[in-house]
Amino acid sequence: MLTIKEYVKAATIDEAYDLNQKKTNCICGGMIWLKMQRKNVQTIIDLSGLGLDKIEEREDEFEIGAMVTLRDIEENKALNDYTNGAVKESVRHIVGVQFRNVATVGGSIFGRFGFSDVLTMFIALDSYVKLYKGGIVSLEEFAKMPKDRDILMSIIVKKQPLKCVYMSQRNTKTDFPVIACGLSLVGDTYKIVLGARPAKAAAITYKKDESMDIKEFAEKMGEAAAESFDFNTNMRASAEYRKHLAKVIVKRACLKMEGVY
């Protein structure tokens, strides 16, 4: 049961930051995760008046405000053109349209949840978070940082010539993933991101080998990925099954990128 004493729609990011320094206060994104917690909050800080709900495309980057909803990134043409639809694929399985109209990118990224499709997707890209005090930090780095009381303002995605694919395996179509995979290829280097292991998303890189047959290569990359990550058991799947899935999903993502799956 969540109780809240006070609600403040911050007028400035400074105000939001100051309020957030108190441990009993809390920033709310879409509220979906927060609402499920048994927690007594003194002041809830709403960032929705700060203009953080925009997706801006610049010549060399995208900037996605923390309050942008999952539905917004699903529907954003530029972002999906850039990722060949991978961003849409990463969120379209999440519960339903109404859920995605409420849940925010900032909430999903800041929470650094193990099951996060969004985190898995964006680590696969050249992404950074813009923190109010901490400045710009690579998303991969941010994912490893302990939670603090800084404010996540936006996600920055640096544009570069890349290919990318998103795939996930779920026990039901709208469930959390039991394995999530973001794969990108820049030059001859693949970035393989695996989330929902069930630990949060992490990445490895892997060199492309043009000399090998693509099917053989994909198989090999899948096996290498499965050996590089740790997998655990939760109520949805065992470590062993996840490891097997990692092999399959990385292989398939690689083949899909080449249009042969």
Binding site: M36, G96, N171, T172, K173, T174, D175, M235
Partner: peptide, 16 residues
């Protein structure tokens, strides 16, 4: 009991 919500006890959705 672990399946204490519709998040942890998944009913068929129309896409299933």
């Amino acid at each position: 009991m672990m399946n204490n919500s519709f998040m942890q006890y998944k009913l068929p959705a129309r896409v299933d």
